[in-house]
Structure formats: C-alpha cells, structure tokens
C-alpha cells in the first residue's frame, strides 16, 4: 500500500491529540490546546503537561517499541507468532526491573530501565540460540511459554522475599502494565534504550527481508548470519526492555500490529518495521482511550485491556497458521 507510513503518522498525531482531551478534570479542547502551548491557567497546564501528555506519550512509545520488537522477532524467527510477550522476553524484562526494585537500585534513575533491558536481552539471546535448533513454530512458542512460566516462578519468589510492603506493591504494579501516572522523566530515562533498539532493528531490516528465503540461502548469499542475529536480537531486547521500563508488562501489541501491517507492505518483514511501530503506538493509544472514556473499563489497567483484546487475536492468528501448514 502506498503512503502507508504517512497515513499512520497522521493517525498517530491525531490520536495523540484526541487522547489529551478526556480525563477526570473536565477541560475544554481550547483549554487543552492553550495549556499545551504553555498558556492559560496553571492548573490546566499542570494537568495537560504533567499528567495527560506523559501518559499519552508513554502509551504511544510503549506500543511502538513493542510492535517494532515483535516485527523484528517475527522476521528473525520467520514466525508470525513470535512476540516479546509470548516468547517470555517481556517477563524477563519485568523480572529485571523487579530485581532492581528489590535491591533498592531504583534510586539511580537508569537502574530500572537498564535492568529491564538486560533481562530482555538475556531472554532474547536465549531464544535466538534455541531457535537455531528448533525448527518447528509450535516448539519455539512452547519454549517461550516455558521460559515465561519459569520467570513467573522466580517473580513469585522475589515477591515473597520482598523486604517492605511498599516494595511489594511497586513490584506487583510493574507486572500489570500501565501508563497512568507516568512522568516525562520516565520516558526520558528509557529513551536511550529505545533509540538504540530502534536503530539496531532498522539496521537488521534488510537482512530480515532476506531471511524469508531461509538461513541457508541467506548465509550463502552474503548475509552475515551471526552479526545479523545480534542486531535483531539486540534491537528487540533493548526495545522490549525500554517499553517495560516505562509501562511494565503489556502483551500482544507486538503481534497484532505487525499482523495487520504485513499484507499492506507486501509481506516484506524489513519494510513492515516502521509501519508496525506506528500502528502499535496507535493501538495502545486507542486502548488507553478506552480506559479513559468507557466507565466500565476505568478500573482496569492498560496491560489488561491489551491482553483482553490481543489474546483472542493471537489465538485467531495461530489458528490461521495451523490451517496453512
């Protein structure tokens, strides 16, 4: 589809703008605009600039990062079901972040994003090595489920051992996934990981397209498989770590967004990276908009909404795959 990226950029900007409108404090559109520009009364400015804007940006950035990580992993593993959440990468990132909180490292502000990224990188590396010997799609997914469960158990151990109720609450909070009450600083401290991850993923794009033919042809035809795997794995790991550092565990964006984008980009995994990221951002903005506007959903968290919508889509994609093979 031509103009896919410009369309998605426009949609993203529109959704970002719309997402600033609803909220408990009833502000008019005009109040929001003036507050955004640093004008108007002080209360509206604080609400828009320090509550609503960071929340919306966090939702968009998290969705974009997870979707690009998903698209990259799908290309690398040649598997439409690969996704940071399904493969246990998100769980590892949460575990990393929780570990930092547990040991009270949260004070130096880079500690949580860094340990989340470290956890994600370790898991991604493990999966990519497992993928060398695992040829069947379903086996790899099972591997991810096993990894997720194992890390889940480690999490429980950590929770039981948590030194104070406050730490416990913070650790539990992390695993749910939410973008409420985020500050621009949270995004800022995750941004080095997100930027580095994006660069690595984009660098791996051409190789991802080429991997469509399989690793044997790709390596004989001049792709340095090892270097490429490091690029893709590093990129996906950093992006997932950064996303988890901002929002905690949010599943399935990484699978739904690339799945919608793929047919629109001629199924070229390299070319689907940027549109997937944009759509992933839009999807989480939409989900967060649901939270803010539908009274029934108000008490839920973004991670829950994402799974409520994403998990059935995941099952549907899996069934489609099963029919093809």
């Amino acid at each position: 589809m031509k103009h896919l990226t410009p369309i998605l950029v426009s949609a993203s900007l529109l959704l970002l703008a719309v997402s600033l409108l609803p909220g408990p404090a009833e502000l008019s559109a005009w109040q929001v605009i003036t507050a955004l520009l640093g004008q108007g009364d002080a209360q509206a400015r604080i609400i828009v600039q320090e509550i609503r804007l960071p929340r919306s940006l966090a939702a968009f950035v998290t969705g974009a990062a997870l979707a690009m990580a998903g698209a990259t992993l799908q290309g690398l593993l040649r598997n439409p079901l690969a996704e940071p959440g399904v493969l246990g990468v998100t769980a590892a990132a949460i575990f990393g972040a929780t570990l930092a909180l547990y040991f009270g490292f949260a004070a130096p502000l880079f500690a949580v994003p860094a340990s989340a990224a470290l956890g994600a990188l370790a898991a991604t590396l493990l999966i990519s090595f497992a993928a060398i010997s695992i040829k069947r799609t379903s086996t790899l997914i099972l591997f991810g489920i096993g990894l997720s469960s194992f890390i889940g158990a480690l999490m429980s151990v950590l929770l039981v051992l948590s030194p104070t109720p406050f730490t416990l609450a913070e650790m539990v909070n992390w695993s749910f996934g939410s973008v409420a009450n985020r500050s621009l600083q949270d995004i800022l401290f995750a941004s080095p990981f997100l930027i580095a991850g994006t660069i690595l993923c984009l660098l791996s794009g051409r190789g991802l397209t080429f991997l469509t033919l399989g690793e044997e042809i790709a390596s004989v035809s001049g792709l340095d498989i090892r270097r490429h795997r490091l690029l893709a794995v590093g990129g996906a790991g950093l992006l997932t770590g950064g996303a988890v550092a901002i929002a905690g565990g949010i599943g399935f964006v990484g699978i739904v967004a690339p799945h919608i984008v793929r047919p629109l980009t001629g199924h070229d995994p390299g070319r689907s990276l940027v549109p997937s990221a944009l759509l992933g951002g839009c999807l989480l903005l939409l989900a967060d908009l649901l939270l803010k506007t539908v009274p029934l959903f108000g008490a839920l968290r973004l991670g829950v909404i994402a799974s409520l919508i994403g998990a059935p889509v995941f099952v549907w994609i899996a069934l489609q795959e099963g029919r093809h093979r």
């Binding site: 040649r78 051409r206 469509t212 790709a218 035809s221 001629g266 070229d268 995994p269």
Partner: peptide
C-alpha cells in the same frame, strides 16, 4: 518462503 512475498521481490532478493 517464510512470508508470501510477491514474485518480483523474491527475484530481487537475488541481488542481495
């Protein structure tokens, strides 16, 4: 093929 690429894209991969 991992993905159903269009015919001309598959051939273009030969120019990698």
């Amino acid at each position: 093929l991992a993905w159903p690429l269009p015919v001309h894209t598959v051939v273009a991969l030969g120019r990698f």
